[in-house]
Nucleic acid binder design. Structure first.
Lengths: 137, 137
DNA sequence: TTAATTCCTACAATTTTGGTAGGAGTTGCA
DNA sequence: TGCAACTCCTACCAAAATTGTAGGAATTAA
């Protein structure tokens, strides 16, 4: 399951993609519309800003805005930043590889192939969908 | 990511599928072979027994054994018991459905379709693979 | 100057995870 | 009958992750 952090972040990005035509979108607007705690949402938006999905403008009439066209933002990249690995076990993660504590030998690990197959099938969906697709733009 | 509980359980089942020809397999054997804590493993095997993946025999020369042919045990069913939902959000889970706290309206949830697509793609892999496939029997 | 906003640091409650401890009950065999 | 090797059961627990909250500082538009 996704953490709420990741889920809220995804929804926030989609909201901004849909409503960002007329200038920056305020965190409070998003929190209202999606039913989220504003303080928690702020910390998520900060993460997205630091990873250059979002820009921000301070002060009155400030808010958050996309730095790239929605059609060039892949869902997989967002999830990797908000949630971490796509893979179900660390030792088959492409972006967050880590040896499993218990695995004596990765090459002979009994569940390795299955884990790779699941990972690739998930990746396919998440790479083929952009923010524009999900926001139906 | 899978919990260690689920990962250990999967490995244990594969081990039993591979080594269960000559009678029950002891928890201590599995723990040794896979590098797991025996007490923790015991509690996982209990779960698998209660869900009728495994049978057990007490006393000397006792241990655990599969109740069905490996080729008729789907990976998806094991993971559902050990880990819970396959879906990334509760509101698209087929077996563990739960309304999302924040979702006002599921039908208009912006990420619903993506979540369904990911779920189905994962399910396809996990339904097509049985214990026999994974254990290479 | 004021209101509205982001930005920053610190803390904290709750839940989940990943176990451990200690022994009771069962069985096969000498 | 007694011992060794197992499963089975209950209870507990520490660490980590998650999901926030609190309180304000800094910035900006009008």
């Amino acid at each position: 399951m996704l953490t709420k952090r990741a889920k809220y972040g995804l929804k926030a990005l989609v909201y901004i993609a849909k409503n960002g035509e007329e200038g920056p979108v305020q965190a409070s607007k998003i929190a209202d519309a999606e039913g989220l705690s504003i303080k928690f949402l702020e910390s998520i938006l900060t993460t997205l800003r630091k990873h250059e999905f979002l820009g921000s403008k301070k002060g009155k009439y400030g808010g958050y805005f996309l730095l790239q066209a929605p059609s060039s933002v892949r869902m997989v990249d967002i999830i990797r930043v908000l949630e971490g690995p796509i893979a179900l076990v660390p030792c088959v993660s492409l972006n967050y590889y880590k040896k499993c504590d218990d695995c004596k030998d990765e090459a002979t690990c009994s569940i390795n192939k299955l884990m790779v197959d699941v990972r690739d099938s998930t990746l396919k969906v998440l790479k083929n969908n952009t923010l524009a697709d999900v926001a139906q733009l």
